[in-house]
Simulated scan of single mutants.
Amino acid sequence: MTFRHLEIFKAVVETGSFTKAAKKLFITQSAVSHGIHDLEKMTKTPLFDRLSHRVQITRTGELLLQEAEPLLAAGQALSSRLQTLENTASIHIACNITIANFRLPGLLTDFSKEYPHTSVNVDVVPAATAIDHLVTGKADLALIEGAIPQEPFCSKEMGAYLLKVVCSPDYPLQQTELTLDELCRERLLLREPGSAIRDTLESQLYLAGKTVYPLWCSVNDSALLAAAVAGLGIAILPETYVLEELKKQHLVELFVPGLVLKNNMYAIWHRDKYLSKPLKAFIETCSALR
């Protein structure tokens, strides 16, 4: 005998009909009939008299109802309590550095309006580490850019951003348009190997048969931006990150015909991970920001 059996039994008592009980519980009439049949088999006695247009509870059924009602009330109270706990439970996110800089603050602000009592704990880490956190269960969700990892993960696209090739107006260049060969020969300020930004650049260079040997490698976009503004070299950074410096004319954009750099962003979770209501809502918030 299960809690579900008792729920079906009480619904039939309250509605006086298998059909109406099915509608109340949003299940099929067949499921109601099977549930009552199971109960009568377990109690070894009829629980209802089947009349022409309705069912009527028997004396044995009344005794069962008296025993079942406290259990159902306790179950409903427990279900309500568990739902409250689920809605206030924390979410753990492993977030790529670039997404943490530009997308995560706004995303968290929007989410907190719907779930103000759900805390979101964030680890800002490289994409590979974020995936490791999913595998080990340290994170419920990973926000990454670049290639989508293969099984056993599910994903939802969060949009994309462009990368800009920029340098200081004082950087020694004769023109703002460079060939790919000319770009590779310049003093480049790049993200570290393995980062999504670096992978996007190197994949296009690989197809063109080119290789770069950067002057600077950094995990920190801010350091590369500062170095570019100081005239130390050419940086390739997210468009959002350099817009303000371009407006102030602290940087100028360089154009490399044929070089189009764009990174897609994704919310990733393990396919076997239970998605709580707040976690589902957070994933939907991610995709809504596209």
Rank of each mutant, 00 (worst) to 15 (best):
A68S: 07
M42H: 10
S80T: 12
C95M: 08
Y206N: 12
A68C: 04
L39N: 05
F111I: 07
L72H: 03
S52W: 10
L108R: 08
K156R: 14
A128D: 13
L178I: 04
A31Q: 10
N263D: 13
A230I: 03
L275Y: 01
L65R: 06
N121E: 15
S203D: 14
F111D: 03
T15Q: 13
L279F: 02
A74N: 10
L237K: 01
P169Y: 09
D181R: 10
T45I: 12
T60H: 14
P70K: 05
C167M: 05
V166C: 03
A160S: 15
T15D: 09
T58P: 00
A74Q: 14
T43V: 15
V242T: 10
H270N: 11
N263R: 07
D38C: 09
I36S: 06
A89V: 02
E145K: 09
K20Y: 11
P214A: 03
P46R: 08
L190R: 01
C95V: 14
I36C: 02
F153I: 08
P105N: 06
V120G: 04
Q66I: 12
R185D: 15
E151L: 06
T176Q: 15
K210A: 11
L178Y: 02
L39R: 06
L201H: 04
A227T: 06
P152N: 07
P152Q: 06
P193T: 10
E239F: 07
I197E: 15
A223G: 09
K156S: 14
L178E: 10
R191F: 10
E253M: 04
P257S: 00
S30E: 15
E239A: 12
R81A: 15
G61A: 07
T179D: 06
F18K: 08
A267W: 02
T43D: 02
L134A: 01
V256T: 01
S218A: 10
F26T: 13
K262M: 11
P193M: 09
S222A: 14
S287H: 12
L190H: 03
A31I: 05
Q204H: 13
S119P: 00
I268Y: 03
T179S: 15
R198N: 11
V124E: 11
L104W: 01
L85T: 07
M42R: 12
V212G: 04
A68H: 02
R185E: 15
H53T: 15
L243P: 06
Q150S: 12
A77K: 08
I57C: 08
V125T: 07
L190F: 05
S195N: 07
E253L: 01
K20Q: 14
A142Y: 04
T211M: 11
K273C: 06
E14V: 09
A147R: 11
V212N: 05
L289P: 00
Y115G: 02
L104G: 00
Q29N: 13
P193K: 09
L85V: 12
V55Q: 03
K10G: 04
D140Y: 01
R59W: 12
A226W: 07
T84P: 00
S17Y: 06
D221R: 04
K273Q: 12
Q150G: 07
I93H: 00
V260Q: 12
T179Q: 05
D170T: 12
D140H: 09
E40V: 05
G61D: 10
L246T: 04
V125G: 01
E86P: 01
L141T: 05
L47N: 00
H34Q: 15
Q174F: 09
Q174K: 11
R103E: 09
D110Y: 08
T200W: 05
